[in-house]
Design a protein around this nucleic acid. Structure first.
Length: 269
DNA sequence: ACATATTCCTGGGGGC
DNA sequence: TGCCCCCAGGAATATG
């Protein structure tokens, strides 16, 4: 699932190869509820120069020279792919950009993702709703975000993008394991030391995964179709009934807030 | 004001 | 081979 490390990997590749180049053409192949691209979308995007590709939370932010902004969210299966000019679209491809001769495909099997154009003010508002960026915020400040509401379960707090931005199901479970904390505990049960430890581990696991270009547990690939390298370094996510890498205890999987949740019953208290 | 459940969507895997 | 059912999940929306 694309979370902060995966989206940042994609952002970096998009920015490096597209910043300063012009969107010469837009071919719409398939629209949907979250991707209602029509004539207005094409009119606002075609002919525009890409000033920069940024990221906020799990959202890709394509800044155009017109002041308009393309906001892209990969959700589960969204992908931006650099492909050859003779590329034959698949049935899941939604759109193909021609960016100074480079074909870039927006593809999304499950159609949860979105790619929309907004003006500067709308963009600022949308992005202002997210919580702090974990890699650009001190552990001390992140820890303060984990104080309230006290009755909330830790896992739910970590998945809430307004609490801290960019964490998803994989890194929520991984951070809890590294911090030695069970994800179903309420925030009220955390000591100040627990909160700081959890905040530190969030930063560490995200940075370590980013260094490996993210985790490909299922569908995620980068703009070249390459998988991330962090899967083999996961400690609990997707390792149900496998031995804990620390104590050999079998990893437990439960459902928490409708999400598969993995933890070690011995290492995590 | 809070927590929890449902919804969107499709491919893949298990069971038979 | 194929059919049915369930599962994966981010985040908006609905319900309790």
């Amino acid at each position: 699932m694309p979370e902060l490390p995966e989206v940042e990997t994609v952002r970096c590749q998009l920015h490096d190869r597209l910043a300063g180049r012009v969107i010469r053409g837009v071919q719409i192949l398939r629209t949907g509820r979250e991707f209602p691209a029509g004539e207005e979308f094409v009119a606002r995007v075609a002919g525009r120069r890409i000033a920069a590709v940024e990221r906020r939370a799990k959202v890709l932010v394509w800044r155009l020279d017109s002041g308009d902004v393309l906001l892209g969210h990969l959700k589960m299966t969204g992908k931006f792919l650099f492909v050859a000019s003779e590329y034959l679209p698949t049935k899941h491809d939604c759109l193909i950009f021609d960016i100074d001769g480079q074909s870039v495909v927006w593809s999304d099997v499950r159609r949860f993702g979105y790619l929309r154009v907004h003006d500067t003010d709308e963009t600022a508002h949308i992005l202002s709703l997210y919580g702090p960026e974990p890699l650009e915020t001190s552990a001390k400040d992140l820890a303060e975000r984990l104080l309230t509401p006290q009755t909330r379960k830790i896992k739910a707090a970590l998945l809430d993008q307004t609490t801290i931005a960019g964490i998803g199901n994989i890194y929520a479970d991984e951070a809890c394991h590294r911090a030695g904390i069970r994800p179903m505990r309420r925030l009220s049960t955390l000591t100040a030391a627990d909160r700081l430890r959890l905040a530190e581990e969030i930063r560490i696991v995200l940075a370590e995964s980013l260094a490996q270009k993210g985790t490909s547990s299922n569908d995620y690939v980068d703009t070249d179709g390459e998988r991330g390298g962090f899967l083999s370094l996961l400690r609990v996510y997707g390792r149900t009934n496998e031995p804990c890498r620390t104590c050999q205890t079998s990893i437990t999987k439960i459902v928490l807030g409708g999400r598969g949740t993995h933890y070690c019953s011995k290492c995590q208290k």
